[in-house]
């Protein structure tokens, strides 16, 4: 199974990014191979609108079934939900720590958006 983390850096030691739609990139970690790949989010970072929706699309397309991020709005959440991606909240930690916390089941799962959407 693959887990996506929002990231501003490019290694497991970098901090988990609190923003979802406008995160710099996603670090997608494969639990089976213990390897990770990076999915750039530059296009959505600069989008006028709908960044969360398209970021969610990237996460779904990357094959992740779990997302660990700071916050998630309603439109992004509905895309993730439709794509069968479970969302967990993490903040003020490195991606390695977030991965460890997820393994220990100490991350809180979001069952709905935890921040308001933009535009509406």
């Amino acid at each position: 199974m693959k887990i996506a983390f929002t990231s501003s850096g490019k290694t497991l030691e970098d901090a988990l990014c609190p923003r979802f739609g406008r995160a710099d990139r996603f670090l997608v970690y494969d639990l089976e191979t213990s390897e990770f790949s990076l999915v750039e989010n530059a296009q959505n970072l600069n989008a006028a609108q709908g960044a969360g929706i398209q970021a969610a699309q990237l996460v779904v397309n990357a094959g992740a079934k779990v997302l660990v991020t700071g916050h998630c709005g309603p439109k992004a959440f509905s895309v993730l939900k439709a794509g069968g991606v479970r969302v967990f909240h993490g903040e003020n930690m490195s991606i390695a720590d977030a991965l460890e916390a997820w393994r220990n089941q100490s991350l809180v799962e979001l069952h709905a958006a935890d921040v308001d959407g933009h535009w509406v």
């Binding site: 959505n44 989008a47 006028a48 609108q49 709908g50 960044a51 929706i53 398209q54 969610a56 699309q57 779904v60 509905s78 895309v79 439709a82 794509g83 069968g84």
Partner: peptide, 13 residues
Amino acid sequence: RFNALACVADQVL
């Protein structure tokens, strides 16, 4: 170009 569509699980949102 307005990011108003997504396609997940073979379904357009």
